[in-house]
Design a protein around this nucleic acid. Structure first.
Lengths: 110, 110
DNA sequence: TCATTATATAACTTGACAGTTATATAACCA
DNA sequence: TGGTTATATAACTGTCAAGTTATATAATGA
């Protein structure tokens, strides 16, 4: 288990990340919310830690797990050309946004 | 193996998709380009077919495999709120684009 | 200090998956 | 028709991952 893609392949891990989107959580909270044993959750958190998708903050015996977005850049990067194709085919949304962006920039220039 | 996420977890399958981004390919081409046996490639193609990421066109004994983007919507959908967070945090790019879009719309209205 | 709380790790089981080789299927062509 | 080409499927193997239970670690608080 090394890549972000593999970490995201597991539905439980995706659910954990979704929960962490709201706010940092203790391991115990995740155990209560998902229906998996505490060691099971800890193992998932380990994988997420290893790929950098979560970060731990210790607080006495408790550990707050919080989301880290950075590794998603890898996924975004891979998806980028596909999104491009999609947009080219269906809306040319990409070009539109680029154009708009450009106009706006000129607008703001002195 | 059911979800798009799982299909994308395997690096060989991602490479196959990358190759299909250029143009449709025969199984044999993929076998030559990747260093995996023909049955191995066929198995990966099966998985990709099952989640709808590729489509086959038969041509005599040959099979042209071509990319299908639709299933990537599932991934995009899941990523959306994360991208949102990212943009909120680092650039508010999202809001900017929305604003630009709105202005442009007013512009185009009679 | 000792029991409790919170989490991590170890050890194990089960199942699935990526890869292989061997074989089946099926269309082509000489 | 029979051999060749192109791909799929079957059967098998080894690895790894997700889950479990049991245990270790470590900080707290009475």
């Amino acid at each position: 288990m090394t890549t972000t893609f593999e970490a995201l392949a597991d539905p439980t891990r995706r659910r954990i990340l979704d929960l962490l989107r709201e706010r940092p959580r203790l391991v115990g909270e995740l155990v209560d919310l998902l229906e998996i044993s505490q060691p099971g959750i800890s193992k998932h958190l380990r994988v997420l830690r290893e790929v950098g998708l979560v970060h731990v903050r210790q607080d006495a015996q408790r550990r707050w797990y919080e989301l880290r977005l950075e590794p998603l850049a890898e996924v975004e990067g891979w998806l980028q050309p596909y999104r491009h194709m999609w947009e080219e085919r269906y809306e040319r949304l990409d070009e539109l946004l680029d154009e708009l962006q450009e106009k706006e920039n000129k607008h703001d220039e002195p």
